[in-house]
Design a protein around this nucleic acid. Structure first.
Length: 496
RNA sequence: CGGGAAGUAGUUCAGUCCGGUAGAAUGCCUGGUUUGGGACCAGGUGGUCGCAGGUUCGAAUCCUGUCUUCCCGACCA
């Protein structure tokens, strides 16, 4: 049974409660392996929903799933490095292929004779192996576009790790597409950004800002990096997804050419895009409160939990006569419902437990309700409850789930709106940015200015918004640092 | 790799300054009473005090070394 030392998620040490909440809500735990995590069944159920919802949207865009090897020969990365500055170097490297019994005693040791001629890298991302493969798939314009995605794990030897937000190994999807024209590739990168934004807002109930990264923050090798940026409850920014327009860089590194209609060799144009288990971190840090996790219904593994309140087995049987048909009806409506008739814990314990797990709707029925033909219905997002007639409860629940979904989004949006403000003086900026939230400021467009701001305040340009934020106009002005002209305001924040 | 903090029961921690039988809460097990918001009573279970040396009649406690974890930087989705 779960351990209940009371949660205090909103305590000042936000970073501490985050880990605590993850563990206590039964989502994940630190693994014995350095920097890795175990995703527990309840947490994984959320990830599965994220996967299936995204996958459906990808397929609407013509994407097909594929799978590429975990291990990448070191030479593949060298090839990329010649063309691309600053790719990830914090990697796990496979050097041997055999173990043997320790000749001096216990356990096993690496067989020194089993050294690999060429080291293999555990993928930090799959660009290199995928483009080496694409080379063989592409010869004519008729082979294009190629729209592949893979769901997999990747590994980066991060120095500091944190459950869901930054683990050494994490789960993600990475899409890699090849196109015949620049325009088509650019459009596709934009389209996938829209898919992510739609998913974040409709399913995860997380409002995001769609934007483009400044050159400093751009993915190595990309001509353009699009992103969605979300605001966490402590006012810090979290990048929730990215979509890159890669130009012809990878095609040139890996010699991927096709013969065009005009019978000329041309390099293909590429995009890549990805989201990771980091989305679960965004979910937790956007919606959770002092009572634990709050899940938008679209992602909740259990959307409705039903708790019968009883003293004796006979009482339970009577309650179940009423409750089972309700559960069956809800299931038929596609609602994920669970009856907890266990006598191992008290109703109060169950209430608190399901609240911590973020179950959106709870029904409770006892002897009193049985007599009156009523049932208690409680919602997690507002922590309110009422007793209503049992007739027609199914429709009420369906509506309530929809309402909770919208309310989660609105709540997050209200918070975000309250924590976005314009700022025109750099002196003021230095003060304001420490309070958290997003600051909309004019910037002269130079990496030097951005670097200066980062050094002095830790704040970075999260993105240059693609469209004006609600309630704001897009208008030119002067850089808050240098006074040089600026075409529009950009989003500054301190980020995770 | 720099700067801080911490390793003691399944979990959260006290005890360390000032060496002298290993503690609390919670969890877990048993029995009973309970059950409409994290139940109560009684009994029980559970620890080579991170590891290795040293000092001492005696070390969780003092000394030396070492490993690990967490937080703040650098790195990053």
């Amino acid at each position: 049974m779960a351990n209940f030392q009371k949660l205090t998620p909103r305590s000042e040490d936000y970073s501490k409660w985050y880990n605590e909440l993850v563990v206590k809500a039964d989502l994940a735990e630190q693994s014995a392996v350095r920097g890795c995590m175990v995703i527990k069944p309840y947490g994984y159920a959320i990830w599965e929903t994220i996967q299936s919802e995204l996958d459906r949207r990808f397929k609407e865009q013509g994407v097909k799933n594929a799978y590429f090897p975990l291990l990448i020969p070191k030479s593949f990365l060298s090839r990329e490095a010649e063309h691309v500055e600053g790719f990830a170097k914090e990697c796990a490297v496979v050097t041997h292929h055999r173990l043997m019994n320790d000749p001096n005693g216990k356990g096993v040791v690496v067989d020194p004779n089993a050294r690999l001629e060429e080291e293999l890298i555990i993928r930090p991302t799959s660009e290199t192996i995928i483009w080496s493969t694409y080379k063989n798939w592409i010869s004519s314009y008729r082979d294009l576009p190629i729209l592949c995605n893979q769901w997999c794990n990747v590994m980066r030897w991060e120095m500091r790790t944190r459950l869901f937000l930054r683990t050494a190994e994490f789960l993600w999807q990475e899409g890699h597409t090849a196109h015949a024209t620049k325009e088509e590739a650019e459009e596709y990168a934009r389209k996938m950004l829209d898919v992510y934004a739609d998913f974040a807002e409709k399913v995860m109930a997380i409002p995001v800002i769609k934007g483009v990264k400044s050159p400093n923050e751009r993915f190595a090798g990309a001509l353009n990096t699009y992103c969605i940026e979300a605001m966490m409850q402590d006012g810090k920014a979290l990048q929730a997804g990215t979509s890159h327009f890669l130009g012809q860089n990878f095609a040139k590194s890996f010699e991927v050419q096709f013969l065009s209609k005009e019978n000329k060799y041309e390099y293909v144009w590429a995009t890549s895009w990805g989201v990771s288990t980091r989305l679960m971190g965004a979910l937790i840090m956007t919606h959770s409160d002092d009572n634990g996790l709050v899940l938008p219904p679209a992602l909740a593994p259990i959307q409705v939990v039903i708790v019968p309140i009883f003293k004796k087995e006979d009482d339970l049987a009577l309650l179940l006569d009423k409750l089972n048909p309700i559960a069956d009806n809800l299931k038929r409506m596609g609602i994920r419902v669970q009856i907890d008739a266990s006598d191992k814990s008290t109703p109060g314990f169950k209430f608190a437990d399901y609240e911590m797990k973020g179950v959106p709707v709870r029904l409770a029925m006892g002897g009193r309700d049985l007599q009156n033909g009523t049932i208690e219905i409680a919602r997690r997002d507002t922590m309110t409850k009422e007793t209503i007639a049992i007739d027609g409860i199914e429709a009420t629940i369906k509506n309530l789930l929809d309402e909770i979904q919208v309310n989660c989004y609105n709540k997050a949006m209200t918070y975000r709106t309250a924590n976005i403000r314009e700022c025109d003086s750099y002196e003021e900026f230095k003060q304001e940015i420490q309070k958290g939230g997003f600051l909309l400021c004019h910037w002269d467009g130079t990496p030097e200015t951005e670097e200066k701001i980062k050094e002095e305040t830790k704040a970075t340009i999260r993105c240059i918004p693609l469209e004006a934020l609600p309630g704001y106009k897009e208008e030119p002005g002067k850089c808050m640092v240098t006074g040089k002209p600026s075409p529009r305001r950009v989003v500054f924040a301190i980020a995770y």
